[in-house]
Nucleic acid binder design. Structure first.
Lengths: 135, 135
DNA sequence: GCCAACTATATGACTAAGTCTATTATTGGA
DNA sequence: TCCAATAATAGACTTAGTCATATAGTTGGC
């Protein structure tokens, strides 16, 4: 990395700035609903599936967060769970999407479309002002 | 609104669900950086400008949140402020974007591009599984 | 037989970020 | 004179997520 005089001090200030792009977390919920529409799965497997999505890009999300999210989604009636102790290994809590969850996912589509539109507009604004700045 | 038997119970569960789309808040920071690239402004004016963006669509964001955000951004060196008591009315704290803030906005462009891409992919996944579900 | 690694779930403490409510102060207009 | 708009901010609370840790069953190697 090349270091200009300005660059050195700026790089230190980047730490923990949302511009780094670590704040797409709220999107975990629709991602879980999508995963559970395709198959009934237990938490640990959901964590692994999430890791494969472009959102996490290979890194597993914090399992504590995912388990908490699943509990909250169950409490709100989007998914339901039951224990599976039939197979080998530790007991697994399997989750299944409900009608309410499917309804929620359909609303998520509208919301994501709006987010997509808004971010697109923010992006073009950002590009406009930064290129103007350089001319 | 038409009410099916399922509909009635589902509508009650929608309340406070992120699928309603109220969680684009983290994007306030790049929006502020864009606004301050165009002109030096004080907090109250920034709140009004934010309201005009597609993100808030006319509704003013909570001023307390914006003021807190501005303070945090100043602390991190993205913007600097000074009081203006020259004009009539209550004292105004004017903000100006710094070199660090401009650098941050340039990184935001990359981050927003990734968000845009990821949300697009989530969206097409969501559409795929919900249409499959209806066939 | 024991230990390490992996599978699987869950809790407590902490932090970040935002909302809601209320306070203070200036100015202009009905 | 009193109210509304402008302007900034603080306190209490809520939500959401992270980090560290606890628990427990299974598998494989030595």
């Amino acid at each position: 990395m090349t270091k200009s005089i300005i660059g050195v001090s700026l790089i230190l200030e980047i730490k923990n700035c949302p511009c780094e792009g670590k704040y797409l977390d709220k999107m975990v919920q629709p991602a879980i609903l999508i995963i559970l529409t395709e198959a009934n799965l237990h938490g640990y497997k959901i964590v692994q599936r999430l890791a494969e999505t472009p959102m996490f890009n290979g890194d597993e999300p914090d399992p504590a967060g995912v388990y908490r999210c699943l509990k909250a989604m169950e409490k709100r009636g989007l998914i339901v769970s039951c224990w599976d102790i039939s197979r080998t290994g530790p007991a697994k809590r399997f989750y299944r999407i409900t009608e309410g969850g499917k309804e929620c996912l359909r609303r998520w589509i509208e919301t994501l479309e709006e987010y997509h539109r808004i971010i697109g507009m923010l992006l073009s604004e950002a590009k406009k002002v930064t290129t103007k700045d350089r001319s």
